[in-house]
Amino acid sequence: MASLKALKLRIGSVKSTQKITKAMKMVAAAKLRRAQSNAEAGRPYSQRLSDVVASLAGRITIGPESPRLIGGTGSDQRHLIVVAASDRGLAGAFNTNIVRAVRRAADELIGQGKDVSFFIVGRKSRPVLQRLFPGRISGQHDTSEMKNPTYADAQAVASEVMRRFENGEFDVVHLAYSNFRSVLAQEPTVDQIIPVRPSAATAAAAPTTASAVVEYEPDEEAILADLLPRNVAVQIYRALLENQAGFYGSQMTAMDNATRNAGDMINRLSIQYNRQRQAAITTELVEIISGAEAL
């Protein structure tokens, strides 16, 4: 049985922990609102861009001389997975979920006899991946200095990935991030970004835009060649934004839980403390009374 003093100290420490988690929750809530509006502001651009790329891709015939970003390298042996996670922890299962999705995708590819390597954005996924897939991390982008992801960051990641793609270091690039559904639901997603694979949604939207007779300047292929690298950067940028929003959402939920748990713990400890105090008083009284009676 802990002494009264020890209990009191314990209650004090849980209380200060609760203060911290409460503060973190509020901060996360405030930042979430920012991140969420950023993520929403970024959606029209990436949506339009992928629509256009899909409609253009439907118009040209993919041959050996078409851009490699869309036609692929003719092989799908070497895969790169760009893993976008967060730089900070204390966000519940946020990073774990991303890593788990990555792991599943990677295991599947390795099972098919493919080579898989990783490119890390955000340092939290690094230790786990290093342990699970030693020696497969081929690069990373340091995001520890950035507060909010900017397009420049995404461009830096994209140009690094593109440069290595052009050097022929890999054939297929996937992007793993957490899709921000709502504050409570973040969905870890692994998308293929190189070569471009028109998703079902954009493929369905494509015929409507393609039906009109559109004049292209310069021509379809030149436009496409210009847009594809941009598309990669934009997809990465979108992933970073979604991640950011998802991270704060996840952190807010986690900190809310922690605050509530701390509250429960304080209640339990207080009850224990009061019981012991009372027991001590009772014992003391019994001692005094029995002492008086003995006289």
Partner: peptide, 19 residues
């Protein structure tokens, strides 16, 4: 400012795309 020259767009312009 298109790649191949500036162009003005008013309502009813024909479908067109440029970098």
């Amino acid at each position: 400012p298109g790649t191949e020259g500036e162009f003005g767009v008013m309502a009813g312009h024909a479908p067109f795309m440029t970098t």
